[in-house]
Design a protein around this nucleic acid. Sequence first.
RNA 1: GCCCUCGUAGUUCAAUGGAUAGAACGGCGCUCUUCUAAGGCGCAUAUGUAGGUCCGAUUCCUGCCGAGGGCACCA
Length: 531
Amino acid sequence: MFRAQIREEIEKLVPKGTVFSVERPENSEHGDYSSNIALVLAKKIGNPPAGGPKEVAEWMKATLGSRAPKLGKIIERIESAGPGFLNFFIAREALVENLSIFSRRGERFSEREGVGAPGERVKTERNGKRETSKKINIEFISANPTGPLTMANGRGGFYGDALANVLSAVGRKVTREYYINDAGNQIKLLGESILAAEGKIPAREELYKGEYIKKLKEKTAAQAAASLLKEIKVSLIKAGIKFDVWYSEDKNLHKKNELKKILTFLNKKKVLHEKEGALWLADAVVIKSNKESTYFLADLAYHYDKFMKRKFDIAIDIWGADHHGYIERMKKGVEAIGVEPARLQIIIMQLVRLISGGKEVKMSKRSGEFVTLDELLKEVGVDAARWFFLERSPNTHMDFDMDLAKERSKKNPVYYVQYAHARSCSILRKGKPGKKADLMLLDKPEELALIKKILQLHEIIEDITDDYQAHRLTKYVYELAQTFTNFYEKCLVIDTKNKELTQARLALVSATKKTLKQTLTLMGIAAPEKM
RNA sequence: GCCCUCGUAGUUCAAUGGAUAGAACGGCGCUCUUCUAAGGCGCAUAUGUAGGUCCGAUUCCUGCCGAGGGCACCA
């Protein structure tokens, strides 16, 4: 809200296409928002007025101050500072007004409203276009049904789930999808692994081992895959990860002859060529010399289905780090289909190292030595597991310390945040906020800091909508919990000697509680009312 | 050998090219006869290395060192 408005007003004054920042400075002395526009502008034009960044900043300050009635309401003052920054200080009236609008809203997001002030749609893509109606397909986990989900699948799983939550919260039409590789070589290997475990055929290096294979005896490959898929679904329910579509490679592509159709389509486009008896698209094989199709061809058919048949505007694929080499091929593939490659967004989740007893636990799905998602959840709980995975940026090679998650569970940040929520509930049990609180009574630094923090959720959501960096949620909600706790320490909420102030503070606590719960809900983490 | 990701405090991680590089855990010292002490306050400690671009680099580019992962007519 504030950030977008400041940006809009500045844009009116500068040449079109000028790239500048409006951000929250770390140091509060630098205002609530700050912009580097003077630095950028001084270089581009020395005019008006001729001079360096500082002069430009002074000019911007004066101009914004007098020409922007909209800003006049929300900005108390503008300062030019440092090497040429423009610092904006939000007026208390504006904070209070927005908090009061915010307080009247329900606890859940409404798709129509988006997040933030009611009636205000989230603007995205930085160019201000309203794109809330975009259809987005988000495909994640998609582990082969050749074994149970591992804890590493949890990382992409929780991340994808939270990202999907955020995108739906701003009104995107989100489809959560799990692609089931129930055709091809892996399934064949699964069948042979069972036979080998039964001693019917000799064991080989590439076959799956592990205890779970033994439990599948007597089953055909297809039966085993179906049974494993069922287990995967149960694990996902336990993890609280929801899917809208379970897309079977076998049923939706192979059985429907889609591979042949995509081949014909690509042939017509003349993008395929023959080499050494195989058929290629760029430097990847689509039909092997033995006439079998490759996984890549199936993936082309799958993405054709996503973009052309089901008409998704954006497809987000969340893959493990071991697939990074596949990105370029896939991008070229969708381009060959006739889809702008930017519509395919691939997020790579780096590998997770599991640390137990101070040592790395080596895992390998094929050898059957791995920690399953079920085991992880049983060990540390869903909330802690979600928190730790969501806390990290996708391209961080993260360590997951089991002992830390268990032993120090009381000091886990997730409990700190949940505790803040429980504490706010406890206060609200003792005093109910009335309808008419005079929020202008809130003027202590701790109160204002808390209001600002609450109103920031809107911007966090907006940022995630732009760049899919869902790990911002954990950082934000932790800061919110800290800001609230700080307020709690300094400001007595229920004060029998001052009923007006009590009402105002109760309204603030109520807004905090809602915001904590909303954010935790986006992350799929419980917000307990008592702890 | 080629490609991708990463290298920040004792540890695990933050930081759209911006101002004094933030947290948490661990360490040390304080702190409650007010609504949840699972709390609060204070202190110490960091950008692997050598260059380059820029008014400004943890961020972009190049070399080197180190860690992980990919380099199949597997999926």
